[in-house]
Amino acid sequence: TRVETATETAWISLVTALHLVLGLSAVLGLLLLRWQFPAHYRRLRHALW
């Protein structure tokens, strides 16, 4: 049971790290898009909202 718990903890930390990385890359990508294509971003936002 001790090994299982350790594996579970490792998986949880791995998944958390993955989610953090994905979230950060998504935010960075959005910022980059907004910085590179302001007109396109505004049009996209206008279409979405």
Rank of each mutant, 00 (worst) to 15 (best):
T1S: 11
L32Y: 00
W11I: 09
L22G: 08
S25M: 05
T7E: 02
T1A: 13
V27Q: 00
P38Y: 11
W11C: 07
W11G: 03
I12N: 04
A10L: 01
I12F: 04
L24V: 10
W49S: 00
L44V: 15
T9A: 13
Q36F: 04
L48Q: 01
L14M: 12
L20V: 12
L18V: 07
L30S: 09
T1E: 11
L30E: 03
A6C: 09
T1M: 14
A6Q: 11
H19Q: 02
Y41D: 07
L20P: 05
P38G: 12
L32F: 00
A26F: 13
E8Y: 02
H46Q: 05
V21R: 06
Y41I: 14
L22A: 13
L14P: 05
R43M: 08
A39F: 12
P38M: 15
L33H: 08
L44T: 06
V3L: 11
R45D: 01
A26C: 12
H40K: 10
F37G: 02
L20C: 10
L28K: 06
A26R: 02
L28M: 11
A39G: 15
L24F: 10
S13M: 13
G29K: 06
S13I: 13
W49A: 13
L18F: 12
H40A: 12
L31Q: 08
E8I: 01
S25G: 05
Y41W: 12
R42E: 12
W11L: 06
T16R: 01
T5A: 06
E8N: 00
P38H: 14
L24Y: 01
H46G: 12
L22S: 12
V21E: 05
G23V: 08
S25F: 06
E4I: 13
G23I: 07
F37W: 10
G23M: 12
L28F: 08
L14F: 02
A26G: 09
L28D: 02
T9R: 11
T9I: 14
T5N: 05
L18P: 02
Q36N: 15
S25C: 14
A39E: 15
A47L: 09
A26S: 09
T5S: 03
W35Q: 15
R2S: 12
A10C: 00
W49G: 02
A10S: 11
R42Y: 13
G29M: 12
W11S: 03
L44K: 03
A17L: 10
R45V: 13
Y41T: 14
L33M: 15
P38I: 12
L18T: 04
V21F: 11
W11A: 00
T1F: 12
L18D: 05
L32P: 06
A39D: 09
L30W: 03
F37T: 08
H19W: 03
R45F: 00
E8P: 08
R34L: 02
L14H: 06
L22Q: 05
T16N: 07
A17H: 05
A26K: 07
R34W: 10
R42F: 06
W11E: 05
R2P: 12
R2A: 11
V27L: 11
W11F: 11
L33W: 14
R42V: 11
Q36D: 00
V21W: 00
L18A: 02
R34M: 00
L48K: 09
S13Y: 09
T16G: 03
A26L: 11
P38C: 09
G29H: 04
W35E: 15
H46L: 08
A47H: 13
G23C: 12
L14W: 01
L32T: 00
L20W: 07
A26I: 09
F37Q: 00
R34H: 07
L20H: 05
A10E: 13
W11K: 04
A6R: 11
L32R: 06
R42L: 14
H19L: 02
V27H: 04
S13T: 14
L31V: 09
L28P: 03
T7L: 12
A39Q: 15
G23W: 07
V15I: 11
Q36A: 15
A10T: 09
A47Q: 08
F37V: 10
F37S: 08
A39Y: 11
L28H: 02
T16D: 00
T5E: 03
W49Y: 15
L22H: 08
T1Y: 14
L30Y: 07
R42C: 10
L24E: 00
T16M: 02
W11N: 01
L28G: 03
R42I: 06
L32I: 06
Y41R: 02
A26V: 11
H40W: 05
V21P: 02
A39C: 07
L14T: 01
A47W: 11
L18N: 03
V15M: 09
G23F: 14
Q36R: 15
V15P: 00
Y41C: 14
V3P: 03
T9P: 14
R42W: 14
E4N: 12
W35D: 09
L33Y: 00
T1C: 10
H19T: 03
T7Y: 12
R2Y: 13
T1D: 07
R43G: 09
R2M: 12
R43H: 00
Q36G: 15
T9K: 12
T7R: 13
P38E: 13
Q36V: 15
L24R: 01
A47I: 11
R42P: 01
T7W: 13
T5M: 04
T9C: 05
E8C: 08
E4P: 06
V21N: 00
W35H: 15
L28R: 06
T16L: 05
E4G: 09
L24C: 08
V21D: 02
L30A: 13
T5H: 01
A10N: 04
R45H: 10
T9S: 10
R2I: 11
P38W: 01
A6P: 07
S13G: 13
L30D: 04
A17R: 04
H19R: 04
A6G: 12
A26H: 03
A39R: 14
L48M: 15
G23S: 06
R2W: 11
I12G: 03
S25V: 10
A39M: 14
V21I: 08
A39K: 15
S25Y: 01
I12M: 07
A47V: 11
L44G: 00
Y41Q: 05
R34E: 07
A26W: 07
L33Q: 06
A17K: 02
L14I: 05
L22E: 07
F37I: 08
T5L: 02
L14Q: 05
L20S: 03
H19E: 06
R45G: 10
L22N: 04
L18K: 04
V3N: 03
L22W: 06
L31H: 04
V3Q: 05
G23N: 04
L33F: 01
L20N: 04
H40N: 07
I12Q: 08
L30H: 03
L28Q: 01
I12V: 10
H19P: 01
E4L: 12
Q36S: 15
S25E: 04
I12P: 04
R42G: 11
W11M: 09
V15F: 04
A6D: 04
L33G: 09
L30Q: 05
W35N: 15
V15E: 05
